[in-house]
């Protein structure tokens, strides 16, 4: 009797935990649909079905800019390169700045000056320096299938994305390392730890939760910078390019479909990061 009751209760619990996150988006969809019927102008606001038709057929060519899938893929490649460069530079620098007070004193002022600059403010300067140079320019390929792919990865885009990723990762890494309890370091030192042991076996694992949080935030900012990066001259593909190009042709349905794709990918990244954090860093939550 009791088990049946608790079973029913747990089913209700699972049900509500699955349903409740959907309520707000569904309300938004309803408002959108209602408004679009009222407005009756698909340039201002297309109906829900028209946008979802694009999202549900992502392989279809859009305004001869290629399919949604291929453009999302191109954008993902760009984000990954810029983002990884940001992480690879920010994590070691953050660890050094978090551990060595001298390094922090020397570099902190520079970081604090550069950090508040919106990544978009860098665009003119970056274009002046790198123009439309791409991976293809660097490698020296000038034709063929690889040229098309590599030429789409512009250096200036990667730098904008890099800047977006760099600061959240750097600041969270510094924070994570400087908050490592001194006793942990001291106790490793008296056990005979070398400097390398301190970094690899104490500081990095202890700061890992904070570093991964920074990586999650950094990836979010990278995605935000993407649209801006893909609006720059020389861009002929990517989800940001689709949005701006569709805008000039008054195809609001494609604009919204592009926005939803970006949002979905962002959500996916966030959820997978949080899942990883919860499974790997349970000790942090529990040791408090």
């Amino acid at each position: 009797m009791k088990t049946a009751a608790t079973k029913a209760l747990s089913i209700i619990k699972i049900f509500t935990s699955l349903i409740s996150p959907l309520i707000a988006p569904l309300i938004l969809l309803a408002v959108w649909q209602y408004a679009s019927v009222k407005i009756e102008n698909e340039v201002v606001l297309p109906p829900v079905a028209q946008v979802f038709d694009i999202l549900l057929h992502p392989e279809k060519d859009l305004l001869s800019m290629g399919s949604l899938t291929s453009n999302v893929l191109m954008s993902t490649i760009r984000v990954m390169f810029g983002y990884l460069a940001g992480v690879i530079l920010a994590v070691p620098l953050g660890i050094l700045m978090g551990y060595y007070k001298k390094a922090n004193r020397i570099l902190n002022s520079l970081v604090e000056i550069l950090r508040p600059l919106p990544p978009l403010a860098w665009i003119p300067l970056i274009l002046a320096w790198f123009g439309v140079a791409s991976f293809a320019t660097i490698i020296g390929i000038e034709e063929g299938e690889w040229y098309v792919l590599l030429n789409n990865v512009k250096i200036s885009m990667l730098i904008i994305i890099f800047i977006g990723a760099f600061f959240p990762v750097l600041l969270n890494t510094i924070q994570g390392v400087s908050c490592v309890k001194k006793t942990l370091i001291d106790s490793a030192l008296v056990l005979g730890a070398s400097e390398r042991d301190i970094f690899c076996k104490i500081l990095i694992p202890a700061a890992a939760p904070s570093i991964v949080t920074g990586m999650r935030l950094g990836l979010g900012v990278s995605w935000m910078c993407l649209v801006a990066a893909e609006m720059m001259p020389g861009s002929i593909s990517g989800i940001g390019y689709i949005i701006t190009h569709a805008y000039t042709l008054a195809r609001t349905d494609i604009v919204i479909a592009g926005m939803i794709s970006i949002g979905m990918i962002g959500l996916l990244i966030d959820v997978s990061f949080k899942k990883f954090e919860n499974s790997r860093f349970a000790w942090q939550r529990l040791s408090k």
């Binding site: 309890k181 106790s187 694992p205 000790w283 942090q284």
Partner: peptide, 9 residues
């Protein structure tokens, strides 16, 4: 040490 010297992970 007095406390919190074990690596929690």
């Amino acid at each position: 040490f007095q406390e919190y010297s074990l690596l929690p992970w």
